[in-house]
Design a protein around this nucleic acid. Structure first.
Lengths: 204, 204
DNA sequence: GTCTATAGCTGGATAGAC
DNA sequence: GTCTATCCAGCTATAGAC
């Protein structure tokens, strides 16, 4: 392995780390190359020695965050209770997302005007989704429609938690309910009509 | 009613309308007072004759969009089938959100750095939520926790539809499933364990 | 690779004449 | 209320010496 290349990677990683520190404090759109250079102890042109544009920095930040996400979610959860494993998985996901909102915005919302991640930076997210797919399979859910329903449910919890109760637990504490609701329906979607119990009171 | 005041309101409304045209084309963060003035047929200082700051323009835009939302959702849905009414309501909501993504971003995501809506601009959103609460009640759901679960589920569908399949129907076509899943669980949350059916195949 | 210096542009907001 | 003219600040990105 080339030492020069290793040095270069290290310098890039330092800049990306400073960039994350910056946006955590100032917000995702507040990333500026001047301030980034200042915090990294270098000057703006030097930043361009490592990244060809601001967008390339966002891409490297995206890649690092996606790796963090994959690592955070990767711990084994196999307790021989598939539903409990699913619950653990969502809990981890919600914790990961709510712990760092700018990171969530870059990874899962498309809030930066010109930026979309490269395939390389996006790869860990694909792996994470595949892992979720397998967890669902072990719980007896394999219909791809239900995988979509699952991602809607979990990102909805995260989204509401972040948007309407940042730092709180108003939605994250609903994870157990959400998972049980989801699994029950996917296991027996037809049975729901039998349980219908329309309210008789109150109209218009 | 004062004619001067009416004129003033009309001019303000024109500017706000131009602002929405602009962000629909260029994206929410691309709103600039220069371009807004140009499109409105006036100059930048004149904008300041009607709005004291850029943030005030965002606030007026928010208020207009919130009124649009309330109006869009307000049509009666009473078909004497509460669950069908709920489904109609979600369908309307998803259509409203996906029809105009910058509008969705301003209303429901908090993506503009310094901006948060005034209480006045926010009021229609409160009314809409109250209406949803009543619809849920008519379906036999009154636990506030389940209202939160409901908002998570519906915004999750919108969020995934916009983020991962803009212009498509990959998530919006799951609305029926989502509503039935939700109602079934809320009507009988305890029954779900009975339906457990862990998959025996496949491990690690 | 790293710097100084700066180009080139766009932004929000204001002064002051009319 | 509306304009012309402008201030001042910030930004990305580059030129060119070392």
């Amino acid at each position: 392995m080339d030492w020069r290349e290793a040095r270069r990677r290290g310098a890039r990683a330092t800049i990306v780390s400073s960039a994350w520190d910056l946006v955590r404090e100032e917000g995702l759109p507040a990333l500026s190359l001047r301030e980034l250079a200042r915090r990294s102890g270098i000057t703006t042109p030097t930043v361009y020695a490592y990244f060809e544009s601001k967008s390339a920095i966002y891409d490297a930040m995206f890649g690092a965050a996606a790796e963090d996400c994959a690592g955070w979610m990767a711990d084994p959860v196999d307790t021989r209770d598939p539903v409990a494993d699913l619950t653990t998985d969502v809990r981890r996901f919600v914790e990961f997302c709510t712990a760092d909102i700018p990171r969530y915005q870059l990874l899962f919302q498309h809030t930066i005007p010109g930026f979309s991640p490269s395939d390389q930076a996006y790869a860990p997210a694909v792996r994470a989704l595949e892992r979720t797919r397998q967890l669902l399979r072990r719980s007896g859910v394999s219909d791809p429609r239900y995988l979509d329903l699952w991602t809607a449910l979990t990102t909805g919890l995260v989204d509401q938690q972040i948007s309407n109760d940042p730092g709180g637990t108003r939605w994250s504490r609903l994870i157990d309910d959400a998972v049980r609701m989801f699994v029950a329906y996917c296991h027996d979607p037809q049975s729901v009509d039998a349980g219908q119990r329309p309210a008789s009171s109150e109209s218009a």
